[in-house]
Amino acid sequence: MEINRRDFLKMAGAGMGSMILPTPDKSSASKLAEAENAFSMLYDATLCVGCRACQTACKDRAGLPPVTDEARLYEMPTELSADTWTLIKLYNGEDDYSFVKKQCMHCVDPACASVCPVQALEKTPEGPVVYHGYKCIGCRYCMTACPFDIPKYEWDEVKPYIQKCDFCADLQQEGLPPKCGAACPTGALISGRRGDMLEIAHKRITENPDTYIDHVYGEHEVGGTSMLYLSKVSFDKLDYPKLDSKPIPEITWPYMKAVPYVFFGMGGLMTAIYYFTHRNDKAKEE
């Protein structure tokens, strides 16, 4: 176990403490402000030529097997899966088309990390949302809660783990860009500070208002994401859902914060009722 006794006691203490004392929680605005300097990527769908170099580079780096058919022939995977962490899709409309890249969005305030009962998913301050398989119990709440449908499961394994893009967190630690971005030949996928990426995105929109729709996807969606998107077709066509700017953890946290009050409140109420309904017991006995 990567946890020693002192850490455990610290955690237990913090846990107990926060059950009794309401801890000051960061607002989504302050989390967004902090994310300014976090690692981020900008995908410009208008520059993507659909070469899928990013897809191959990802498989290569993460050691993911190609998805083959029964005859072991390689076809293009059509959906993200435990063996495919990123994927290029083509939207082919009546009179418009666009490529679109799929992978974990690395939310600023991710639902998966908030709902995981054992902290197997973690939002690192640097930006990536990483998965600690050794903690996982396999409840799959992260899969259900993710608004982008990203965490995938090893359904065929006897001991299955969650699989998803980890933003090449290990490479980033060394100051290197993620493999998908490094592999992109057209500059459709660039990386850097989230603040800089947003600046570039908005600059591109203002300079070429006819090329882009006026929306940087991921700037505000579910409280902001590390992956930012530019496109010339609307995002719902690219299977990117219309989402509120409220982070999902902010929906559940007020309820969870109320837990100690409900717990002890109910205890107090029941004790009071007990003494009220049994107030004549002593008298009866005498």
């Binding site: 237990a12 908030s114 995981c116």
Partner: peptide, 14 residues
């Protein structure tokens, strides 16, 4: 693991 890895934000933990 529920006993050693706490996430008080998670309804499922509770």
């Amino acid at each position: 693991h529920l006993i050693i890895y706490w996430n008080i934000h998670s309804p499922l933990f509770e």
